[in-house]
């Protein structure tokens, strides 16, 4: 028989409640909502008109190789390609006008009048060290993407990218381009040529509504 003290104490101490299902449901909800939000962004990015499209060849990607490194591990290109964007002297005038760093947009291009002007303005040294093999140069800058769209993004050789722009520096986002399943086989079939590379395939990179890029086509040059 329990003493009076024990009975009183037990009555004041209800048994521990095993956590209900609400916490578990909320945790699953957070996981689902976060993934759903992420997928919504991906779908939105790839819907509607692209905000940029530029064609390259396999020779433009310095690290292009489908060899393995001896550990049966494929080189990164199987999963992704790296874009290297250079160029654009924003200059003091712009700096005075724009003030300090701000979130804006740059137009990157690979050919065209503005591109030639900037490319020719680069010193030999800059061309060798700053400008990559892709020769993708930022050629215009603005606070608003709409100001760049009339001239860039729809000509097949330029794209409008979000960037962090300052006095003489800027940073364009999303240099990494993921290679989809459908493209992997095609990329893997392209022979690796090394330094003296002869372009045989055209690789098209497309930027979507959110200015996020993907590899949209791999074609043999002359086949289309």
């Amino acid at each position: 028989m329990k003493s009076k003290t024990e009975q009183t104490d037990e009555s004041q101490e209800p048994q521990q409640q095993r956590p209900g299902k609400s916490g578990l449901i909320m945790a699953v909800l957070v996981l689902v909502l976060a993934n759903a939000g992420l997928w919504a962004g991906v779908v939105w990015n790839r819907s509607g008109d692209p905000t940029g499209e530029i064609s390259f060849t396999q020779c433009d990607f310095v690290d292009f190789t489908n060899a393995t490194d001896g550990s049966s591990r494929p080189q990164p290109f199987i999963g992704s390609l790296y874009l290297s964007i250079d160029g654009l002297e924003i200059g003091t005038d712009n700096a005075e006008r724009l003030g300090s760093f701000y979130t804006g947009y740059v137009a990157v291009s690979r050919g065209g009048e503005a591109w030639e002007k900037h490319f020719n303005a680069l010193s030999e040294n800059d061309r060798r060290w700053s400008s990559s093999d892709q020769q993708l140069l930022a050629v215009a800058v603005s606070r608003r993407a709409e100001e760049l769209f009339p001239d860039y993004g729809q000509d097949g050789r330029s794209a409008v990218l979000p960037a962090y722009v300052g006095v003489d520096r800027w940073v364009a986002l999303n240099h990494l381009v993921q290679v989809g399943d459908g493209m992997r086989e095609k990329l893997g079939a392209i022979p690796v040529q090394g330094k003296d590379c002869t372009p045989t395939h055209r690789l098209t990179i497309t930027w979507g509504q959110r200015h996020e890029p993907w590899l949209s086509a791999v074609e043999e040059i002359g086949s289309s």
């Binding site: 916490g23 992420l38 962004g41 979000p162 996020e212």
Partner: peptide, 27 residues
């Protein structure tokens, strides 16, 4: 997923992550 689809970095990821951690912590 952000890397596969080149999704621009966003602080919102830390909201989701923080909320998930808070729920686990309290549960």
């Amino acid at each position: 997923l952000g890397e596969i689809y080149n999704i621009s970095a966003s602080a919102n990821a830390f909201l989701a992550w923080g909320a998930f951690a808070l729920i686990l912590a309290y549960r």
